[in-house]
Structures are given as structure tokens and as C-alpha cells.
Design a protein around this nucleic acid. Structure first.
Length: 893
RNA sequence: GCGGACGUGGCGAAAUCGGUAGACGCAGCAGACUUAAAAUCUGCUAUCCAUCUGGGUGUGCGGGUUCGAGUCCCGCCGUCCGCACCA
């Protein structure tokens, strides 16, 4: 077969994707005696189109999966769809389509797009969470958790999103707004389903320390989210002896510094007192109106209302503290009540100064021990206890222990732990989710749907024409007979949070029997996931829920593992420059027409980036349509980058364009590049190569036209090089090239193993450069052949094409997809000569080439013998000589 | 406010253990090939001085430890991220 001078990427993509499918090349193998590798990328939501972030994510996982196959592992590399969720329902409301049809169409479109990338995925394991064979098993698991007491129903205040008309988990409220809709979240009291993630708070926190292959950042974020605080919980008695209320503190040591007690506006006592006090009721209402966004908290003033009640100080009942209702105490943390110690808490101090309450120092600030505390900055640092009776002279830790011991001994309080983590509210008043498998019977109460009646399937004929829950208003779906008594009953119409769906899909990929969620034996073989790859945006929500779910199933004895993901990698985003110009738009208000200037974003295709160098032969330049920029271009918009001047302009008109920040691709900023268009132009391998080049994978990757073109050029360069696999010339062995080759084999393997794709790419480039320059030889021909294997995980289509062109005698397998990673010869990994730096007083002055492993004295002598060094030393004897074997000699004169 | 990460050429970056800073790529410049263009190939490309040998400076800024610091320590500045009235 004659060799094409250029690599026909599009034809090769199609040819090899079909060949892999025909041969079922990426079916999961389980040979038992081989090490396993479960490589998983976070499964996508089927929004309709893949974006560059997906391409980067799946390219990384694919390189690793292919590399693991080449190094003799049994590889599980599956793909599926996180298919329930709001966008499908929104589409149903806006376009009148069915969420199921919309979702399944999107899946089909995105599957086709992903296949164009040539991913080594076992598609036979594909799953979609919106199909009954998946969510039915999820319902079974939910019933198991219920039976184990890990599911509860509580009447509680919930975060209500008034736009999506649903409840949100705390994790889904960002700056007081719904994470999807961006609407201000309201507090609403509803009966809700909860998963008792707080039962596992301690375990989930402790477990983090075992996750040594997770990014520190993610572990820290989870640690902060779980938020463990240890301290003292105790009861205040109202003055006169009536029972009062409980408070929690992490600073029991400062108890003698208390000057008031404070309760939340939502505290039951506050609500009770408000019944007889219109002023207090008004104050509480005012507090509830306050926003909780970042800016509002920043500026919010401390406000309080004196109830007129007072409580007894637990260590000195003669001492009475006034009880205030204050706006900065939250009902849903601790007990919703505190004691105020202004000297050592900034918020309490702000409050005390405003309402002129006493401020007593109880922790010495250096030599400052006076009880009367001055200034507006609380002392929260270390120090000895002062003005505190039996605690005086103790350290903070000693005093904490002493107060807790006394409280427990006297029975008015106890040492306790408080968590920031709340139970996971999983009820959603939506149609497009997993139905919660319960029935409400007027006679029997809450009845689980018997497992033999699962799955509880969503009705197809739902009405999406008005907001609210279509399941609840469906005419027939919810009306069923009670499984226990047979009487008329109604189904639960809440569905599960979609984060439940993604909390166990990694188990179902490994094992998907039709009659149960998974086979524990198979789970034992494949889990935990060896490498999980996805976005940092899931650092808390998904990753914490999945850890909880795994631990819950472990507690139920269904699986052995406690942690689902042994190694986690969070990849960076794909970014792009933004382009904009100042535009204006007319708006008629009554009979007056206003002109508004606004920033109009432009797509990369609309913008022409004229690039000219300083010597400026083409200055002033003309743009691509021949419009002289000198007449229309705004000189203020010229960007200088080194010696280069860039004239960003609207391609159609030459009008100047502002180049904005390099940010994540987003539709609103119009800086999106569509993967399909790039695939059409350059093929899968160039896109994959670009995604892996240059930027470290955990950092953001700036997309650029020049970058993808560079990747395309390199693919073509390799193709030309692969034409030299038989060209041995007269030369035999080329020792230097052989070394470089084997060092690269070992180096690329190590880099890929560590997900250092940019470094692996650099090493392949360096090898290609050397091979190109080398004279023809047997070694060079071998290097060309080996290079095909080295790029196979990253550029699979190019590699197959080049592999197929090799004579049979040079191929170990029919397809490179089945080939083994080349072995690096250890003897060739070490150089026999090394370049040694010679420093004088720490400054580099010369270098010399010596045999590797030369002893210290010989290296020192060789350095001192160099004429340049002798000259610099001026004949004097060096004071000191430091020799680092095989690296450098530093002479101190 | 609390916690964390990061800061290296015009740009993306490398330097794995404290040991030759800038590998590799992009952009740029010069040249070769070509009627021309594209493609391809060769060379140069941190900066200043000197010009073909060299020397000074240089990893955000200021200190420190060390024979030697991008790397370790202290203090600033800046950027980004997470949490946020969490008692």
C-alpha cells in the first residue's frame, strides 16, 4: 500500500473507530491474574452538546486507560449519563417536549460526539440514570438505607428556590442563591426526606486522612465543610430558678468573661416571648428579612433586643446575665443560643460596644491583665487565664478542660462535639428524577413500596405547562392501593436529588445485574476506582455524597470498601480570551428614546487578530478584507506583546476590538469553541494532543487557534517520521539516540502514570527532534517504530495508521490497540558521560564532560586543572571545594 | 473576617532530593526551497553591556539560612479559589 504524504486524519478517525468497534477492542477484560485498573471520568450531564471541558476530561482518562491496557492491566473504562435533572424539565416547559425524549436525544447526540474522539471505552456498560433499570435499583438501595435507619422524614425549614419551585440542599445554596437558578432562596417549612449523613460525620472526616492520593485542596474543603467543633454544651437557668435554655461554646475557658446571653431570633424562647411583645415580634421579622449574601454579611450591623429576662451564671449563680435576642446567632448551628464574651470574641465585642454592655478580660494579652477591657479589637490570641477565680493562671486548654470537668461533675453541662454538616435533604418536588418508593396510607402510615413492586416508574403522560410538581398533579399516578392493608393510599410524589444518582453509578458500571443493584463479588474485584478524574466544582457536593453512600453500603454489609475513589484528580478548565466592543442600543420609554452603551461580546470567529512585529513593514496594516486599519482602527486597542503588536478587529469591518480576560468558556461571554467544528477540521488526534500539551492538567488550559494548529503540524510531522521505519541507511547502532529513546520510554511512562501529560508530550517532542536530526541507522529506524507505540495512548488513530503500514514482521499484534508498551532497557537509561558544572563562589564559570561515577578527588582535580578556573583563582589555593558527584564542583576561593 | 493555592521570558510552561534557570511548545525574526503562495526545512530568540571570546543582572518585593536558593525560613505585595455572623 502506498503511503500518503499527509496523514488523512478524518478518514483515519472513521476507519479505526469502526475497526475498534468491530473487534470489540475495549471490552473490559478480567483475566484474574492481571492487575486491574478502574479508570473513571465523572459522567456527563446530557445537555445536548459536548464542550471542550469534556474533551479535556475524557482525553486525559483515555490516555491513562490506553496506557494501562498497554502495560498489561485489566482495564475498566466505562461511560454513562447523569441523566435526571432540571434542564430536561425546563426544556419540557419551554418547548413542549417530553423530558425523556429530550434527554435521550441529547444522549444519542453526545454519544456520537464522544465516539468521534476515539475513546477506549467499553460502551457495553453504558448506563443512563433516567432509565428504570438504573433508578429502580436506586430505589431498592434507598429502601435498604431506610431499613437501616439512615433515611428519615423531618418537618423542617428548607431552602426553597422560588424559580425552580423546589427544595435545595445546603450544599446547593451559594451566597444565599440557588446553585442553578441564581434566585434568592427562601426559608419554608416542609416535611422532607433526609439521608443521615451526619451519622457518618466523624467517619467522613477521619477517612480523609486515608485519601493520600486526593488533592490536599479537596480534602481541606471537605474537612471545613464537615466542620467539627469541640466544646461545652450547658444550660442557663433563668434568674429565679426556672429552666432556661442550652448554649454551646468552643471557649468554656472564657466563661467568667460572660456579660450577656444571646439567643437566635428563630429560637423557640424568642418566638414564645414575641407572642406577648409586638416590639420583639417586629424585631424578629426584621432579622428574617436580612439577606445572607456575602456583601450583606460584610456590612450587616449587629442588632439586638433586650428581653428583660436574665439568667444565672453557672459558676456563680449570684451573678445575673441579661438575655438578648440578636441577629447574629443562627438557629441551625449549635443550640441557637450563646453566652457573649466580648473581650475575646469580635462579634460579641461589636455588639457589647453598641449596646454598652460590660467587657471583662479573662485571657491575659501579654502583660495586660486588667479586667476592664479597652479598645474595639477582641483578644483571640493565646494567654493565661486572669480574673477567673479557680481558673487563674491556667492555659486556655487547661481551663477548657477544667470548666468542662466541673460542669459534668455538677451536672449543668457536658463536653460535646458540634458539626457544621447537616443531614442531606434529598426531596425534590420535581418530575424528572427517581421517584421515592414510599406510599402514604391513612391507615398504616408511611409504607415502603415492597421490593417486588419496584421499580416505581415515572408516568409518561405528565403535564409541564405550569410550574410545580407534575407528579403531584398527575390525575392517576399517585393513587394506589396500600401494599399493607389494600386500602386507598397515595404515592410519595417527591423525587430524589440527582446527586443520589451519581452517588453509586461507579458501582453499577462494575456490575449491573438485572435483579439487584450489583454483585458484591464483582465489586470486590473492581472497586475502588483507581483513578477518578473530574472538575474541582464537585469537591464537596458529589464527592462527599459518594463517600457517604459508599460508607452507608459498607455499614449495611453490602460492600467491603469504605472509600469509593482511591485516587482523585481534579482537572483545570478550558479557557479562552474574550472579545468585546462597546455597542449601543435604543430603548423607547414613553415617547423618549434612550441610547444605552453596553459591552457586546464577540465570538472568536468574528474577530481578526492582526499581528505585526515592531519593524513594521506592514505598518499600518490592512486587515483581511483589505480595509485599511489606519482609518478605522482605534489605536488605543493595540496590544503590545513583546516585540509584537496585535490589532484585534471585527473581521467584517476592521473596527477595533477589546481583548478581555482569559476565562472559562461560556455561552454568555461568547468565547466558546465547539469541539465538533475542530474535529471536522483537524481530526481527533490533534485535538487530543492539544488538550494534553503545554498546561499541567490541574491548571487551566487556554484554548488558542495557534495551539491547535501546532498540534496538527506535529501530528503531520510524526506521520512523516513514521515513514522512516525501514530506513536504516549504512549506519548500525547509534548509541546516543538509543539512550535518548530508552530514557524517553521510561520518562513518558512515568509521566503518564503521574498524569503529567504535558511533560510526556514535551519528552516526545524532544525525542522526535533528535530522531529527525539523526543520520539514518538501524537505531533510528527502531526509534521511529517505537515512537508509534509511545504516542499510541495519545494519538490512537495516527498510531493505528502507522502501525498498519509496518510490515507484519515488525508488528506484534494486528492492531496497536492490543500492543504492549515498549520495554526500556535499564542499561541505556544511564549516561556514561556527564556534564559537570564548575562554580567559583557559587557562580557558574565553566563546564566539563567526565565519565559518570568519577570519584570526588578526580572531579575536583579536573575542575582545578581547567585553564579558566586556574585563571580565576589567580594561583591561590581554594579555601574549600564542594563536590556533588556527577553534578557540579563548587570552588570557594 | 477565616482557610488555602499560586506568582518563572511576549505567551503556555520545565527544572522530580537545595546543585548548570528557561527543557518542550506557541508567537516572532532571519534564511533556504518555490514563478508565487501554502507546506516543509535551517538558524536565532530572558535582559543589559561588550560584539563573535566574555561580563553584569534575572524566578512578584524586602530580609535570612547555606559553599550554593525558583526550591527552605520570616515579613510584605498581588492574583485566584473555598467557607463565611459556625459561638
Amino acid at each position: 500500500m502506498t503511503r500518503e504524504p499527509r496523514f488523512g486524519a478524518l478518514a483515519a478517525d472513521a476507519r479505526w473507530q469502526a475497526a475498534w468497534e468491530a473487534a470489540d477492542s475495549f471490552a473490559t477484560t478480567d483475566r484474574g491474574d492481571k492487575p486491574k485498573a478502574y479508570i473513571l471520568e465523572m459522567f456527563p450531564y446530557p445537555s445536548g452538546r459536548i464542550h471542550m471541558g469534556h474533551v479535556r476530561n475524557y482525553a486525559m482518562g483515555d490516555v491513562l486507560a490506553r496506557f494501562k491496557r498497554m502495560t498489561g492491566h485489566d482495564v475498566l473504562h466505562p461511560m454513562g449519563w447523569d441523566a435526571f435533572g432540571m434542564p430536561a424539565e425546563n426544556a419540557a416547559m419551554e418547548k413542549g417536549v417530553h423530558p425523556g425524549g429530550w434527554t435521550r436525544d441529547n444522549i444519542a447526540a453526545m454519544r456520537a460526539q464522544l465516539k468521534r474522539l476515539g475513546l477506549a471505552i467499553d460502551w457495553s456498560r453504558e448506563l443512563a440514570t433516567c432509565e428504570p433499570d438504573y433508578y429502580g435499583q436506586e430505589q431498592a438501595l434507598f429502601l435498604d438505607l431506610f431499613a437501616a435507619g439512615l433515611v428519615t422524614r423531618k418537618e423542617s425549614y428548607v431552602n426553597w428556590d422560588p424559580v425552580d419551585m423546589t427544595v435545595l440542599a445546603n450544599e446547593q445554596v451559594i451566597d444565599g442563591r440557588g446553585w442553578r437558578s441564581g434566585a434568592l432562596v427562601e426559608k419554608k417549612k416542609l416535611s422532607q426526606w433526609f439521608l443521615k449523613i451526619t451519622d457518618f460525620a466523624d467517619e467522613l472526616l477521619e477517612g480523609l486522612s486515608s485519601l493520600d492520593k486526593w488533592p490536599d485542596k479537596v480534602r481541606l474543603m471537605q474537612e471545613n465543610w464537615i466542620g467539627k467543633s469541640q466544646g461545652l454544651e450547658f444550660s442557663f437557668r433563668l434568674a429565679g430558678g426556672a429552666p432556661g435554655f442550652d448554649v454551646f461554646t468552643t471557649r468554656p475557658d472564657t466563661l467568667y468573661g460572660a456579660s450577656f446571653a444571646a439567643i437566635s431570633p428563630d429560637h423557640p424562647l424568642a418566638e414564645r416571648l414575641a407572642k406577648d411583645s409586638p416590639e420583639l415580634a417586629a424585631f424578629i421579622a426584621e432579622c428574617r428579612r436580612q439577606g445572607t449574601s456575602a456583601e450583606q454579611l460584610e456590612t450587616a450591623e449587629k442588632l439586638g433586643f433586650d428581653t428583660g429576662l436574665s439568667v444565672e451564671h453557672p459558676l456563680d449563680p449570684a451573678l445575673h446575665l441579661p438575655v438578648w435576642v440578636v441577629n447574629y446567632v443562627l438557629m441551625d448551628y449549635g443550640t441557637g443560643a450563646i453566652f457573649g464574651c466580648p473581650a475575646h470574641d469580635q462579634r460579641d465585642l461589636d455588639f457589647a460596644r453598641k449596646y454598652e454592655l460590660p467587657v471583662h478580660r479573662v485571657i491575659a494579652d501579654g502583660d495586660e491583665v486588667a479586667q476592664h477591657f479597652t479598645g474595639d479589637e477582641a483578644w483571640t490570641g493565646p494567654g493565661r487565664l486572669v480574673n477567673s477565680h479557680f481558673l487563674d493562671g491556667m492555659s486556655i486548654d487547661e481551663a477548657k478542660a477544667a470548666v468542662i470537668a466541673r460542669a459534668e461533675h455538677e451536672g449543668w453541662g457536658k463536653g460535646t462535639t458540634v458539626w457544621r454538616l447537616r443531614d442531606w435533604g434529598v426531596s425534590r418536588q420535581r418530575y424528572w428524577g427517581t421517584p421515592i418508593p414510599f406510599i402514604h396510607c391513612p391507615a398504616c402510615g408511611l409504607v415502603p413500596v415492597p421490593k417486588d413492586q419496584l421499580p416505581v416508574v415515572l408516568p409518561e403522560d405528565a403535564d409541564f405547562s405550569v410550574p410545580g410538581n407534575p407528579l403531584d398533579r398527575h390525575p392517576t399516578w399517585k393513587h394506589v392501593a396500600c401494599p399493607t392493608c389494600g386500602g386507598a393510599a397515595v404515592r410519595e410524589t417527591d423525587t430524589l436529588d440527582t446527586f443520589v444518582d451519581s452517588s453509586w453509578y461507579f458501582l453499577r458500571f462494575a456490575s449491573a445485574p438485572s435483579d439487584r443493584p450489583f454483585d458484591p463479588e464483582v465489586i470486590r474485584r473492581w472497586l475502588p476506582v483507581d483513578q477518578y478524574i473530574g472538575g474541582i466544582e464537585h469537591a464537596i457536593l458529589h464527592l462527599l455524597y459518594a463517600r457517604f453512600w459508599t460508607r452507608a453500603l459498607n455499614k449495611l454489609g453490602m460492600i467491603d470498601i469504605k472509600e469509593p475513589f482511591a485516587s482523585l484528580f481534579t482537572q483545570g478548565m478550558v479557557t479562552h480570551e474574550t472579545y468585546s466592543r462597546t455597542a449601543s442600543r435604543e430603548e423607547r420609554v414613553g415617547d423618549v428614546t434612550h441610547r444605552h452603551a453596553y459591552e457586546e461580546f464577540l465570538t472568536p470567529e468574528q474577530v481578526d487578530l492582526e499581528t505585526k512585529s515592531r519593524d513594521g513593514k506592514n505598518w499600518p496594516p490592512a486587515n483581511s478584507v483589505g480595509v485599511s486599519i489606519s482609518t478605522t482602527f482605534d489605536p488605543a486597542k493595540v496590544i503590545k506583546k513583546g516585540d509584537v503588536f496585535i490589532f484585534p478587529n471585527v473581521a467584517a469591518s476592521g473596527e477595533g476590538v477589546d481583548i478581555g480576560r482569559v476565562i472559562k468558556m461560556s455561552k454568555s461571554k461568547k468565547n466558546v469553541v465547539d469541539p465538533d467544528a475542530i474535529l471536522d477540521q483537524y481530526g481527533a488526534d490533534a485535538v487530543r494532543w492539544f488538550m494534553l500539551s503545554d498546561s499541567p492538567p490541574e491548571r487551566d488550559l487556554p484554548w488558542s487557534e495557534a495551539g491547535i494548529e501546532g498540534a496538527w503540524r506535529f501530528v503531520q510531522r510524526l506521520w512523516r517520521l513514521f515513514g522512516d521505519t525501514e530506513k536504516t541507511g549504512e549506519g548500525g547502532e547509534d548509541k546516543a539516540l538509543a539512550r535518548k529513546l530508552h530514557q524517553t520510554i521510561a520518562g513518558v511512562a512515568a509521566d503518564v502514570e503521574a498524569l503529567g501529560f504535558n511533560k510526556a508530550v514535551a519528552k516526545i517532542h524532544a525525542l522526535a527532534n533528535e530522531v529527525e536530526k539523526a543520520a539514518p541507522s538501524a537505531t533510528r529506524a527502531e526509534a521511529c517504530r517505537t515512537l508509534i507505540l509511545l504516542v499510541a495512548p495519545m494519538l490512537p488513530h495516527l498510531a493505528e495508521e502507522a502501525w498498519a503500514a509496518l510490515p507484519d514482521s515488525q508488528r506484534t499484534t494486528a492492531m496497536i490497540a492490543d500492543a504492549a508498551w515498549p520495554a526500556a532497557d535499564p542499561a541505556l537509561l544511564v549516561e556514561d558521560e556527564v556534564t559537570i558544572a564548575i562554580q567559583v563562589a557559587g557562580k557558574l564559570r565553566d563546564t566539563m564532560t567526565l565519565a559518570k561515577g568519577i570519584d570526588r578527588d578526580a572531579a575536583e582535580a579536573a575542575a582545578l586543572a581547567r585553564p579558566r578556573i586556574a585563571e580565576l583563582l589567580g594561583g591561590g589555593a581554594p579555601k574549600k571545594v564542594i563536590v556533588v558527584p556527577d553534578r557540579l564542583v563548587n570552588i570557594v576561593p
